[in-house]
Design a protein around this nucleic acid. Sequence first.
RNA 1: UGGGGCGUAGCCAAGUGGUAAGGCAGCGGGUUUUGAUCCCGCGACCCCAGGUUCGAGUCCUGGCGCCCCAGCCA
Length: 563
Amino acid sequence: MNEVEAKTPEEPRDFIRDIIRADLAEGRCDTVVTRFPPEPNGYLHIGHAKSICLNFGVAAEFAGRCHLRFDDTNPVKEEHEYIESIQADVRWLGFNWGKHLFFASDNFETLYDWACHLIRNGHAYVDDLSAEEIRAHRGTLTEPGKNSPFRDRTAEENLDLFSRMRAGEFPDGARVLRAKIDMASGNINLRDPVLYRILRATHPRTGDAWCIYPTYDFAHGQSDAIEGVTHSLCTLEFADHRPLYDWLIDNLPTSSRPRQYEFSRLNLTHTVLSKRRLTQLVQERHVTGWDDPRMPTLAGLRRRGVPPAAIRDFVHRIGLTKSDNLVEVAALEHCIREYLNQVAPRRMAVLRPLKVVIENYPEGQSEELEAVNNPADPDSGTRLVPFGREIYVDQADFMEDPPKKFFRLTPGREVRLRYAFFLTCREAVKNEAGEVVELRCTYDPETRGGNAPDGRKVKATIHWVSAAHALRAQVRVYDYLFARPDPGAQGDFLEDINPESLSVLQDCRLEPALGEARLGEAIQFEREGYFCLDPDSKTGHAVFNRTIALRDGWAKTQAKGGK
RNA sequence: UGGGGCGUAGCCAAGUGGUAAGGCAGCGGGUUUUGAUCCCGCGACCCCAGGUUCGAGUCCUGGCGCCCCAGCCA
């Protein structure tokens, strides 16, 4: 794979980096340690890329380190498949955690000890209330909660009960361990949050060794502390948890003091980035899988042909703040095009073939013409493209009765065949239905290579493929998965699914050089866009994905001026 | 009527008291054997209202608006 750095971006500047810089300058820490902490219950998406780039980026910039830690504290939702895919996706994005791979589950024993520590100090208690009762006691946003009747058990009794919870003496949900903080707090997270619950589920890593599992609040910050994380960076919805995060660190015998900072998560137009919704799209088969090229998952973007460097560039450009945001996909698309324009070799492919017979070209003859591989990359060289009496051009490049500003083929007009000859359309052949099925044309042998010795000009250059040499392929053209920029804003997000998000073009013709395309390699089909070979390809049956179309100024003027 | 966060151009986003960076999108123009790329040009008085100050997007006060929180999810 062509891995060219898209230009070295200047060091990002944002409030998190300002904080770190200050912490370093004032000696609050001497090495920066961050972590990317996914829960293995789904695939990573471009929103995660923001966090990954931040955490690994910051670590690299300040010569620290970044851990990959799985917050695997809820075995009912977590699976091995996700542990694998997450690692593959982070690596693909371009980051390396080295030996710093951790699992919150590795800390279960320590966490258990720490829970006992809390109990001994009167900071936690076993509650026999049911989930519903606990909810009822919690109060509301505006009314304080009520203390549980079990809140004042002795440390001895709590210790005994807690050890019996671990021993499996009670059924799921029968009891929980709660922090003893303040049922009247305005911050609901401080109203005696649950620290441990009884859950008989096989854990992907610890199997059936445990039947009690710590909650996020009692595992995340603790794991940070155990790993020596200095800056625990998370999204805004966890800001309310920070007082609890700090309270627990204050009351536990940790050897380090991590600090949590929050930033706003990424929102993108025409897409959804919540794990719940993405999981639903996959499970209900609205897409073919987590790696469906229409998905905003890293696996989907990869399969679609989006280069990781473009994603990193995008994340860098959108910045990092605490403001809610909705970034236009156009910004991402720009990064993809900009990168691909530099690295993608150019080839010719006709997506919607229209046969052209060049009447004055000798039958049975063919020749090879030299074509530049990438005008944007002088080192990419040239290749030979076969030419003959019958070629294919795209249906969109011919109009029998064109509007004023249409410069392509129309009866009587001369255009240039890219890297080949000037071609003049003489006649459009139609079928019984009145559809144009073939063009009868003539060419000018004097214009070989694409220039006329007499200096005459043409207003358009179109691409083509020799019929006799063409390869066939299926091309999948993607549009936004969601028609609305804000899916779900009007109700059920599923109703905003774009019914035309996938168009399969079955009978595309490719120039022979495309036979050597490698899986995932970015290629520009001239005048069309960037494409890559899909894993669904079989020998003799190529399948290409359109990563993204080229900007289309013609479509724009059409939309504007009408005819 | 509780707690937390946010409010600078259509969308992101700099700005940390001295008179509004940059990117994306859009629009106009130039170059061009991809109507692509590339190049040039065009846009804000900073949620509102008071106040402090010679001077405020930046400080103070009071409003308004938006987002998050009542999982034994993370």
